[in-house]
Nucleic acid binder design. Structure first.
Lengths: 261, 261
DNA sequence: CTTGCCCACTCGTCTATACGAGTATGCGTC
DNA sequence: GACGCATACTCGTATAGACGAGTGGGCAAG
């Protein structure tokens, strides 16, 4: 068991860098160098207080910085730990290609099982709503829309929360309005109903989560969300669906392939 | 001038919600409702201490929460302000299409001026390096690479930091190794040299910035970064360039168009 | 052996105080 | 008017202490 001094060094009293930043720097460097690895417990607040000879608030300030940076997570009653990097799910840009739809099973389920994870979908809700301005504009200002909400989990961990919006005149009294729309999902149903899909537009933003998003996605502090809004167009140029998705950013990498022409 | 009570309400002493969270909730709600607008100054710490009858650390805790959420920014000596939403730059997925390259001017400059902003590029650096493992794998394990680093600014604000890597055997002693590679950029030069571009792969992640990234992009707290890695392939299937880009997430929307086939 | 309790250790919350440092304003001097 | 300074206000940093609450291990009683 190496001494704390050899792992963390000591403060530089001549430095004009704030003490809590120096402590954060020492911990960050130790993590970067692998002295603490994913899931390892960092020294307790008391140990850091003793080692650096500062007050507890100063140590907490330093640890709080690391949490904001997404490097550490604290667990009440246990300690502060190096944040584990969860397995990452890769979303390929061809994930909605027609050939995948023909298989029948939901893309999320197939792909997760192939990756050796246990997929779940919960909090499914289907209801009719008045569209928000953003959704309304994308769908051509329908008076009402059908909203399909669901949350996706991998191995019990929530990773994504998505809502699909469809113009009500298009979706009412169809399988799309059922909780389970059947094999191939709502895109397969849309095509059966004569809305042959032409292309999708996707808009990607990243930001910090709202408190509500922190709850539904069980996000650690220092983890942003990726906000993806996809609009599906049929061959007539009509927007037939908007899917609004919020993903835990530490669980995803999005992949796109672009032609050079 | 409405009283603070009418804007923020009062604490609920019977609630088991932590006091600093209640204060943060009150401020967040007031911001959401438009009682404080973008750029507005929030009540000073002292005013909040007096209004809620708590100690200053409790108020600072609440304000710190809002900053982590990206809702507020503090300015030393001035106050805490509702974080202004900067104008957002939209990156379209066809931004590297050949037709845009033919114009001659740099895409960033053209587009920024069209949007009425003042574009700048700085800290240009061109050097030969040993590639990191990730870059090396993408480029087919060259021994050395040419690295082109630059930072992009809009109206004086840094928004993006990018590094292009090219296999050295391909780029050495060409215009690509010059600080200014000429009209159309390095992609135009690559095509002139016989590497006709076929497609690009882009990988997108979002995360909190490192301290170094906070400095170079002058990021407010609570602003994540979008990390985009683009690999360019020529028609022979060879990876000819990797561009590693870190963007201030509050300054960008990425847009992609996907075919449905 | 099992159950249940106590205790030690962890982080969470809150108070009170002090001083430092950046900003803006007004006022007096030049 | 221009300049410089004092001052009041802002947030930043740090100390010291207190109590609460979640976790886990040890120990004693059953």
């Amino acid at each position: 068991m190496p001494s704390l001094t050899s792992v963390l060094g000591v403060l530089d009293p001549t430095s004009d860098r704030a003490v809590f930043r120096q402590i954060a720097d020492a911990l960050r460097e130790a993590i970067d160098k692998g002295r603490f690895r994913e899931g390892d417990k960092l020294p307790s607040e008391t140990e850091l207080v003793d080692h650096f000879g500062v007050s507890r608030m100063t140590v907490r300030n330093a640890l709080s910085l690391l949490q904001q940076e997404g490097l550490a997570v604290s667990e009440h009653g246990k300690g502060v730990f190096v944040r584990p990097r969860p397995p990452v799910r890769r979303l390929a840009s061809d994930r909605f290609a027609r050939r995948h739809r023909d298989q029948g099973k939901a893309a999320f389920t197939v792909e997760a099982e192939a990756a050796g994870s246990r997929p779940e979908v919960d909090s499914l809700e289907v209801k009719e709503e008045r569209p928000s301005p953003g959704i309304s504009a994308r769908l051509g200002s329908p008076r009402k829309v059908l909203a399909r909400r669901r949350r996706y989990l991998l191995d019990g961990r929530p990773v994504e929360f998505a809502t699909s919006y469809l113009p009500l005149d298009l979706a009412r009294n169809t399988p799309i309005a059922q909780p389970n729309p059947g094999p191939g999902g709502i895109y397969a149903r849309l095509e059966e109903m004569g809305h042959r899909l032409d292309h999708f537009d996707e808009e990607i933003r990243a930001r910090m989560p709202s408190p509500a998003e922190v709850r539904t996605l069980q996000l650690a502090s220092g983890v942003p969300v990726i906000h993806l809004v996809r609009t599906a167009y049929d061959t007539e140029g009509r927007a037939v669906e908007v899917c609004d998705t919020v993903m835990a950013a530490d669980a995803y990498v999005l992949a796109y392939q672009l032609p050079a022409n």
